[in-house]
Write a protein that binds this DNA or RNA. Structure first.
Length: 248
DNA sequence: AAAAGCCCCTGGATGC
DNA sequence: TGCATCCAGGGGCTTT
């Protein structure tokens, strides 16, 4: 592979691109919202931030304004486009490398798959005094629950986003655990949520937002009880909820 | 140790 | 049409 870099992303690559020339990509994994490319020596961590997208360009046109990174492989050129530049491409010698640890070291459980242990989730909640919405977003208990799906999972489990995590009863914690799996599983099926112009590598939009119960629906009637959906700010992010269906 | 705020950056929507 | 303001799928860092 060969690496070509345009305007800086969130962090420096932390390696000389020339030193990566000829390196082999042996496999691809995911951890939280990080994409991990395993190389024959070291690995690359890729994050799309809020506005990033990756796509293969077969005969690469001239890099556009927001094309920041090309990974040139024998299978084609993988190009990262990211208008907002919150994304990242970082090289690390290995997973124990400090640069990798800094980004991956405190990540919580993967919500899909067998590793999402209910007991660990419950005990994690019991240790946090912060509002449950922010505990979900923080990513050190469970990963992958972003701003849209945090609101949605809390609606599905009938929990008010402002409720302190440790105050949730065991049954409510269990419902939330299940709701996270349900919401994320469903979102993956639907190809994610397209707000503004998100699309996948094939240019296809997601459709989850069409069935969103609360996210982006401020002032509109709750789909269950018709109470107007409310929006509040938590940690500089919008939170949507139904005050009737979601109890403190 | 945990929680709360701040900030990175660009572009689109809205309001005057 | 122009300009100011606000808001946005994330998350690391610094300060309380």
């Amino acid at each position: 592979m060969d690496v070509r870099i345009g305007k800086a992303l969130r962090w420096p690559l932390s390696a000389d691109p020339a030193s990566l020339l000829g390196r082999l990509v042996l496999g691809v994994r995911r951890r939280g919202k990080y994409l991990l490319l395993d190389l024959d020596r070291g690995l690359m961590l890729v994050h799309l931030g809020m506005s990033g997208s990756l796509s293969f360009v077969l005969r690469p046109p001239q890099a556009g304004k927001h094309d920041h990174f090309d990974l040139v492989t024998t299978q084609g050129v993988l190009r990262l486009n990211d208008p907002r530049r919150f994304g990242a491409v970082v090289y690390a010698q290995g997973e124990q490398d400090s640069v990798a640890q800094k980004l991956l070291g405190k990540l919580g459980m993967e919500p899909l798959g067998a590793g999402f242990d209910l007991q660990l989730f419950q005990s994690g909640l019991a240790r946090r005094r912060a509002p449950i919405k922010q505990v979900l977003l923080a990513g050190d208990l469970v990963v992958g629950v972003g701003n849209i799906y945090a609101s949605e999972a809390l609606f599905l489990s009938g929990i008010r986003p402002t409720t302190a995590a440790f105050k949730l009863s065991r049954p409510r914690g269990r419902h939330l655990h299940q709701a996270i799996r349900d919401v994320l599983g469903r979102a993956v099926e639907k190809g994610g949520s397209t707000l503004r112009n998100f699309s996948n590598a094939n240019g296809e939009e997601g459709h989850f937002q069409l069935e969103s119960m609360v996210y982006g629906r401020a002032g509109q009637p709750c789909k269950v009880c018709e109470t107007p959906i409310r929006v509040i700010r938590q940690g500089q992010r919008s939170t949507f909820f139904c005050a009737q269906c979601q109890k403190p």
